[in-house]
């Protein structure tokens, strides 16, 4: 285990950029479309998912030699459900308004495929530190993705950013942006932008084949 700092940093950035759960793997769309009507909601949903993802992956990684592979999925689900319940109580304790805004989607973190996917694909095969870094990177990517959606939808749909009015009282809200179709529009636009940047970035290493291509 003599991974240098840069490698760890790469591992972390992988979740944010090259394997961004939302914009590249297009996973976890249910919360991404449903709760991102405002930046605050999006960010808190992202943080809740971060908590669940990180804690579950750490626990799975610690117990990985103990868990029989025949019942591993059941075990992962029990562990994930535990932390979802914990985060459910935590959010209720922090703010009931936020709890109402996020609604059933807090409980639905348990079926978020990113978390089970990370537990199965990464945490169950790797020791604590790489798991932690990978989980943090993935959740940072997911949180950033949700935030990008929520910020655009809040600015256009309500004319505010974190509740602060940006355009004065006469702003015309784009009603469609806070409705479900708006979520699809904004997600589509972000996917387009991400794909365009990624293509442009990939076009460069092709001319210098020394760069490793996965």
């Amino acid at each position: 285990m003599n991974a240098s700092t840069t490698e760890r940093w790469d591992e972390f950035m992988e979740g944010i950029w090259r394997q961004n759960p939302l914009f590249v793997m297009v996973l976890g769309l249910c919360p991404a479309l449903a709760v991102t009507v405002s930046a605050v909601n999006a960010l808190s949903m992202g943080l809740a998912t971060t908590f669940v993802l990180t804690c579950s992956c750490v626990l799975v990684s610690l117990l990985r030699k103990l868990i029989p592979k025949e019942v591993r999925i059941a075990t992962y689900i029990v562990i994930i459900a535990t932390f979802v319940t914990v985060v459910d109580y935590l959010i209720q304790a922090i703010s009931l308004a936020l709890y109402d805004a996020l609604g059933a989607f807090i409980q639905l973190i348990v079926v978020n495929c990113i978390i089970l996917g990370r537990a199965e694909a990464h945490a169950s095969k790797n020791p604590l530190l790489p798991t932690l870094i990978n989980a943090l990177g993935m959740s940072a990517g997911f949180t950033l993705g949700l935030f990008a959606l929520g910020a655009v939808r809040e600015i256009l749909g309500a004319g505010t950013f974190f509740g602060i009015a940006l355009f004065g009282a006469d702003f015309q809200p784009w009603v469609v942006m806070v409705l479900p179709p708006g979520g699809f529009f904004v997600l589509g636009a972000w996917l387009l932008i991400f794909a365009a940047i990624a293509r442009r970035k990939n076009a460069r290493p092709l001319s210098s084949p020394a760069q490793g291509v996965r």
Partner: peptide
């Protein structure tokens, strides 16, 4: 003649 982004 509404200013862009503002209500009619």
């Amino acid at each position: 003649m509404t200013i862009p982004l503002m209500q009619p």
